[in-house]
Design a protein around this nucleic acid. Structure first.
Lengths: 216, 216
DNA sequence: ATTTAAATTTAGACTTGTCTAAAATTTTTA
DNA sequence: TAAAAATTTTAGACAAGTCTAAATTTAAAT
């Protein structure tokens, strides 16, 4: 149906659209590690196929059709990640690249059966919501720890940074999804956050606090 | 490591090598539904990478390295087919095209874990042997029903034709892997084979008998 | 042993997706 | 608001893989 490149562009635009209303050529180029000129070429093609709204120099957004395609790729990515972690026992920092390939397996029947096989999970191993076969999902209502006031508590429920390095750090500190934490103190000097965990106290940098999400 | 096209060519050459010692350009073109000129181009590239032995006009064969790559693709294909049938409940005539995509997922760690998850199966849903992670497998020792003498019996253990049409026909007649049959009669007029099954008699054409394999 | 036929290869072109370098547009800044 | 800077687009080129048509080589047939 769609080429590998098209799917990757749609997914990138989808991702960038979560934080910005209109997405720029350079943003996409950075996201896909490619050059702005390549992006321009592809945007023209996607616009011809009515998958994006695009006017020269004006940025780009997904059409309804483009959004549907992108969501389906996200759905596949997250279901495969869940499979890799829950069934094949990979760690949450190991699955991204594999899922990046598997999300392009075309069959929807396959992904629906996989979803059923796994019991209709709603979150992937990083806490991100898994769209159902109609593209519906419960949106994140999560906030970074860095926004929490002192004495507030909550359950670790997601990450903003999906890099292996960050995930490995979290694993090591036992900052995993499902864990309850409270903010004990915020050190004003550099916004280091002091967390109270079940049985220990832990200091995390503002950077980390900013990338670790809590359900209040 | 290797492109999609390279992998498909290596797999095709592997498959054709099972029946012929040296494989011709036209055979490959037919197998891949492409043109002879495209094949020639690719053979040069594969020869440059030392994956095939190729001399102009002289046919082609896999090198040791090429064979290893091809076997790994076959391994992945058959493990994914097993997964689709045994875990996701697809029928044996539905899985080929999906596995055709999944065999190109690159991670070997993934396929090894999948193999472990499924309990190290040795045959795919069509009875074809699954190479282990070193490329070793118990070779078929199967013969088509068309070569059996009257009164001989055996267990249905594989197929030569993997087309959905053939597999659906077999399913309908209950000619599935594991079933015991005996040859009751061979009608000399057109080599129709009369099979005795558990509780019924069944006539199959020579064509069918030729594509259905028995372990004696 | 030629000629004919079949198979294979070469030559040149096309598509997809990428790149660099230069031109055009928008945004920022003074 | 006009110059400078940043962004974006265009133009032209390249690599992978494919194709058609023509040329070459091998195999088959008289």
């Amino acid at each position: 149906m769609y080429t590998l490149a098209e799917e990757n562009y749609l997914k990138a635009i989808y991702k960038l659209s979560l934080t910005d209303d209109s997405v720029s050529t350079n943003q996409i180029a950075a996201e896909l590690c490619t050059k702005a000129s390549s992006v321009t070429d592809m945007l023209r093609k996607l616009a011809d196929k009515a998958l994006v709204n695009y006017a020269r120099y004006q940025g780009v957004s997904l059409t309804k059709a483009g959004n549907k395609v992108a969501l389906n790729i996200v759905r596949k990515h997250r279901l495969w990640e869940y499979f890799l972690v829950e069934k094949l026992n990979f760690k949450w920092d190991e699955v991204h690249d594999m899922a990046e390939e598997m999300e392009h397996i075309s069959s929807n029947e396959l992904i629906n059966r996989l979803e059923e096989f796994m019991g209709y999970p709603t979150r992937d191993p990083h806490g991100d919501p898994i769209p159902d076969s109609h593209g519906n999902f419960r949106a994140h209502d999560l906030k970074p720890i860095s926004t929490m006031p002192v004495n507030a508590g909550g359950i670790i429920s997601g990450v903003r940074d999906h890099s292996a390095a960050f995930l490995q750090y979290l694993e090591k500190q036992n900052l995993v999804i499902g864990r309850y934490i409270t903010v004990k103190e915020i050190i004003t000097y550099d916004n280091t956050v002091v967390l109270q965990m079940e049985n220990k106290e832990l200091q995390i940098s503002h950077e980390v606090a900013n990338n670790l999400l809590i359900a209040l």
